[in-house]
Design a protein around this nucleic acid. Structure first.
Length: 571
RNA sequence: GGUCCCGUAGCUCAGCCGGAUAGAGCACCGGAUUCCUAAUCCGGGGGUCGGAGGUUCAAAUCCUCCCGGGAUCACCA
């Protein structure tokens, strides 16, 4: 449609009615928010008026005259300050329905051609995942699906923090459980160790092995046993949520294969490393044990960070930042110039330094985007569910998935934009009502499925291939055309959501689409000729069935993007 | 103090790469049951889009400042 407008403008220029060399970049051709303004609207006259030295309405009149020469455009009128509203020929909309029926789940597929690396979850391998992780997992997973849908080549990665002090704590906790498994009474788990029962099987495993007496060796062995078990547990939890990764990268491996040293060398060769002393943090009391000491620092201030950042501690050991740089450099060397990391809100302060590092080590060739997921507050009976890590009574991801199902968790996590806090209401997601968006959208799909079943029972041929050939002249009611128009915006919505890295838009679209369908359904109660199945009007029925089947396919396509399984029945 | 996010109807929030009268759900009031059933829909009331400037033909949307709420500011991960 944009082509129609642009060619009309070019034609006007050809006729000498419009100045040449106008800046068209701000020109838009879009469906207006208010459907009463027509199918499409363009701001061309207003955007171009000044440069063309014409009044917007005069220019608009010329444009209307020109654009009406197109077959696709039924009517065009000038409105407001100079909008040109276009009404498309009904046939233009009708063409969309068979297109969707032919495309099926592939409807909305794009061809961006980007190559993107998405890193998400990356929870520490020291215990089961809790609900906070679930949001990042869903947002990352759906973002990856969305990017794939719009034509990107996507790698999904998980960075395993298996090298820090927390892993030593894990190993110590596991050794304690080993003693317990051997019959020793261990009493309360001491502060500072992980108290969770999930370490009992790790201890039992260790109890069957020949663990060295010497402490350092015992810890090494405990790590080698505990880490894979923790990762298996995490992978199972993720799988229960329908979340997968293609690639797991170990922090320890980055140390072992000297990737961290190489990253430091790389930055050193760019003269971005020095020995220096950092200022204590401003605006609040310095930590009690603060004392200035020389460390190996990275000049992240040269890339917009507020302070230079430590790569090595004063004792010469690596900080967490260093292997993280090595990891991102590793991604770049594997061919990813576009990286997206999905992080929790507690890492906001870490964004700039990581972006600085990526920028520095790749000479600006690679770009890191960070998607922040804010907190999830679990609600039950109108009250927040108390979560106390100390008592070990925090709610795990697995418990939530087991209680309400993966589809509900996934959908609910997308009912807010990711950087805003989210309430997750247990009562709501189990409710069968309009308030529960998961139910509401599934219900629309199930209703359509049921109608199609009824049509088959009448002996009608309603496979997609049959419906795709049906004449659609009967679709002329405003509510029907509104549904078609909404179906038509699906590919555009996907592309915009992918570009903005906002997976929640897909969920919102599905709710809109479900609402449009439910509305049409109920109209059929009052206006009998809008009922989908009318035995005395087979031709019209087939047209309406084609429409709602296209709706179901679009719902399925959207469900596929957000990783929710469509339900055929909700009874 | 720095950085980032948020402030839109009584409540919970969409909309924000500028566009026409600012939307939805809940709650409130009034209606509608032969297809999946009122598990849904339709209509109604309800708004200084935190405030003040600026840019623009046009600002909830972009820029600046201010107010309020939150997160974060390690040699932790």
């Amino acid at each position: 449609m944009e082509m129609e407008i642009r060619s009309a403008l070019t034609a006007l220029q050809g006729q000498g009615k419009l100045a040449d060399g106008l800046d068209m970049t701000r020109l838009t051709v879009e469906p207006p928010r208010d459907a009463s303004h027509g199918d499409m609207a363009t701001n061309a006259a207003m955007v171009l008026a000044k440069a063309a030295q014409m009044k917007p309405r005069d220019l608009a009149e010329l444009l209307v005259e020109e654009v009406l020469k197109s077959d696709l455009i039924e009517a065009a009128e000038i409105a407001g300050p100079g909008f040109v509203n276009l009404q498309l020929d009904k046939a233009a909309w009708h063409r969309l329905v068979p297109h969707i029926l032919h495309s099926g789940k592939a409807y909305g597929d794009g061809e961006s051609g980007d190559k993107v690396n998405v890193e998400y979850v990356s929870a520490n391998p020291t215990g089961p995942m809790h609900v906070g992780h679930a949001r990042g997992a869903v947002v990352g997973d759906v973002l990856a699906r969305l990017l794939e849908k719009t034509g990107s080549d996507v790698a999904r990665e998980y960075y395993i923090n298996d090298a820090g002090a927390q892993v030593d704590v894990l190993a110590q906790s596991a050794l304690l459980r080993m003693r317990e498994a051997k019959g020793e009474t261990i009493g309360e788990i001491p502060d500072g160790l992980y108290p969770g029962d999930y370490l009992v099987p790790v201890g039992e495993n260790l109890a069957t092995m020949d663990v060295p007496k010497e402490e350092a060796e015992a810890l090494t062995m405990a790590k080698s046993v505990a880490l894979p078990m923790m990762m298996d547990m995490i992978r199972e939890d993720l799988e229960a949520l329908g979340v997968v990764h293609d690639f797991f990268r170990s922090e320890q491996a980055l140390h072992d294969d000297a990737s961290v040293d190489k990253a430091l060398d790389e930055l050193t060769s760019k003269d971005l490393i020095y020995q220096g002393v950092l200022e204590p943090p401003k605006g609040k009391e310095p930590p009690p044990d603060w004392e200035p000491s020389p460390q190996t620092l990275f000049k992240s201030t040269e890339f917009g960070d507020d302070s230079d950042r430590a790569l090595k501690k004063s004792d010469g050991s690596w900080t967490y930042f260093a292997p993280d740089i090595a990891y991102h450099f590793d991604k770049y060397q594997r061919g990813y110039a576009k990286m997206i990391d999905v992080w929790g809100a507690d890492h906001i302060g870490y964004i700039k330094r990581m972006q600085s590092a990526v920028n520095a080590i790749t000479d600006g060739e690679a770009q890191l985007e960070v998607k922040i997921c804010n907190l999830v507050k679990l609600m039950r009976g109108g009250e927040p569910v108390k979560m106390s890590k100390r008592s070990g009574s925090f709610i795990t991801l697995r418990e939530v998935v087991d209680e309400v199902g993966k589809d509900a968790v996934r959908f609910m996590m997308l009912t807010r934009k990711s950087d805003a806090p989210l309430d997750f209401d247990f009562d709501l997601v189990k409710d069968k009502s309009r308030d529960n968006p998961v139910f509401y959208v599934q219900y629309a799909h199930a209703r359509i499925f049921s109608v199609m079943k009824n049509a088959r029972e009448l002996g009608w041929q309603v496979d997609d291939a049959d419906l795709a050939t049906v004449p659609l002249d009967a679709l002329e009611h405003e509510a029907e055309l509104a549904l078609v128009r909404l179906l038509g915006t699906y590919p555009r919505m996907l592309a915009a959501a992918a570009q903005a890295r906002e997976p929640h838009r897909v969920a919102f679209y599905l709710m809109d689409l479900a609402a449009a369908f439910h509305g049409l359904w109920n109209l059929g109660k009052e206006e009998l000729d809008l009922r989908f199945i009318q035995e005395d009007d087979v031709a019209g029925s087939m047209a309406r069935l084609a429409l709602i089947r296209a709706t179901a396919l679009t719902l399925r396509s959207g469900f596929d993007v957000i990783g929710v399984t469509p339900q055929d029945e909700l009874r």
